[in-house]
Write a protein that binds this DNA or RNA. Structure first.
Lengths: 196, 196
DNA sequence: CTTCAAACTGAACGACTGTGCAGTTACACT
DNA sequence: AGTGTAACTGCACAGTCGTTCAGTTTGAAG
C-alpha cells in the first residue's frame, strides 16, 4: 500500500504530522504513544520512523513549523503606518492566525517543557522575536504619544497572553463570531496600551 | 522510619503532595512517574498508596485544593466599594496569589486535560465561579459608567489570561519587583476595562 | 517486656513504552 | 517479464509504567 499516482507523492509524511499534532493537542505529548499516532494514520508503529528520527523530533518539527509560519506570515502582513494601526493589525493577525490553527497554537504553548534544551532554545528564540515585533510597535507608539504605558516589555507579554487565551474558549458557531471577537479584543488591547 | 514526636503527626502525606506538585509543574503530570515522586519524598513507590488511592487522585486533590484556596481567600479579601477599586483589588490579589504559588497555578492551568471527565467538571466549575467573580465586577462597573467595555464575559476571560501570564515570565530578583508588576498590571487592566 | 497498629519495603504483576530491523509487499521503470 | 527500491509489516528488545501485597520495621501504649 505505497505510492500514489504521479511519481512518488509523499502523502504519509504530512499525515503523520497531522495526526501527531491533533493527538499532542488533545492529550499532551507525554501522554501520546507512537502506536496511537500510527493507528491514527492507519499504519504500524515502526513505519513512523520513515518520517521522523524519533518522537522528540516530531514535536520539535511541529513547533518549529508553527513558529516559522507565525513569523513569516506576520512579515507578509500589510501594515498600517501609525503605531495605532499597527497594533490593531497585530491584534487581528494574532487572533485570526490562532483561530485558524488552534491545535498548533495549543501545542506550541503547552509543550515547551517537553523539548530538549537545544530544541527549547530554538523555539524560545522564535517566540521572543515574535514578542519583539509587538514590543517595537508599543515602543514606537509610546514615543509618538499614541500609547500611554509604563513598561513596553511587560505590555507586550501581557497583550500576547491575553490574545492567546482566545484559543482556550472560542468555539466556532458559539455566541460570538470571529469578527466580533477581533473587534472586542481590538478595543481591549488598545485600552491596555493606553491608547486614546 | 515512622511516627514523629507528638502522637502521630502526619508528615509524609503533605510531603507527597508537595513533591508531586513540584514534579508535575516541572515535567507535566503524564511525564512524572510514581517512582519519581517517591524518590523525591525518600520512600518506595508502594508507600505512596498509603496517602493517595492512585495517581489521578493526587492530581485532582492538588488542583481542587488550589482552586478552593483561590476562591476562599478572595472571599476573605477586603474589597473596595466602587467597581474601580474592586477591579484593582482583583488584579492585585490574582498577581500576588499567583506569584506566591507558581507551581500550583501552573499545574492548575496546564493539567486540566489529564483529569477524568468527572474531576474535570468539578475543577471547571470552580474555575468558572472565579471568572464570575471578576465578571460581576465588570458588569457593575459598566452599569455605573466606570468601565467602557463591549463584552464583560470576554473581558473577564481576557483579563484573567493576561494576569495568569505573569507566572510564565516572572523571576523574583529580576528586573521588576512584585509591587512594580502589580502597579503596571493595574494600569493595563484598567485600560482593558475602558476605565477612565 | 509484650502487644498492636501504622509506616514502609521489596518484589512482583501484566501492560505498555520508544525504537530497531529482517522480511514482505507493491509499484515505477526498463 | 524482470529489476530496483520505497513503503510497510510484524516481531522483538530492554525498559518503565501504575498498582498490589505479603512481610518487615517502627515506636508508642499497656
Amino acid at each position: 500500500m505505497a505510492r500514489k499516482t504521479g511519481s512518488h507523492a509523499d502523502i504519509t509524511g504530512p499525515r503523520v504530522r497531522a495526526a501527531a499534532l491533533q493527538l499532542f493537542a488533545r492529550h499532551g505529548y507525554a501522554a501520546v504513544s507512537m502506536r496511537q499516532i500510527a493507528a491514527e494514520v492507519g499504519v504500524q508503529a515502526g513505519a513512523l520512523y520513515l518520517y521522523t528520527p524519533d518522537k522528540q523530533a516530531l514535536l520539535f518539527d511541529l513547533m518549529r513549523a508553527h513558529m516559522r509560519e507565525v513569523l513569516d506570515r506576520w512579515r507578509d502582513e500589510p501594515k498600517g503606518l501609525s503605531p495605532g494601526e499597527r497594533l490593531d493589525a497585530f491584534t487581528r493577525y494574532h487572533i485570526r492566525f490562532s483561530l485558524d490553527r488552534p491545535e498548533a497554537v495549543f501545542v506550541s504553548n503547552m509543550e515547551l517543557r517537553n523539548l530538549t534544551p537545544e530544541h527549547f532554545a530554538q523555539i524560545e528564540a522564535m517566540r521572543r522575536s515574535y514578542e519583539d515585533e509587538l514590543e517595537a510597535i508599543l515602543v514606537a507608539g509610546r514615543a509618538d504619544g499614541t500609547f500611554r504605558l509604563e513598561d513596553s516589555k511587560l505590555a507586550a507579554l501581557a497583550i500576547i497572553a491575553m490574545l492567546t487565551g482566545v484559543t482556550g474558549w472560542f468555539r466556532s458557531g458559539g455566541r460570538l463570531s470571529r469578527d466580533r471577537v477581533e473587534q472586542v479584543y481590538r478595543g481591549m488591547v488598545r485600552g491596555a496600551a493606553g491608547s486614546a
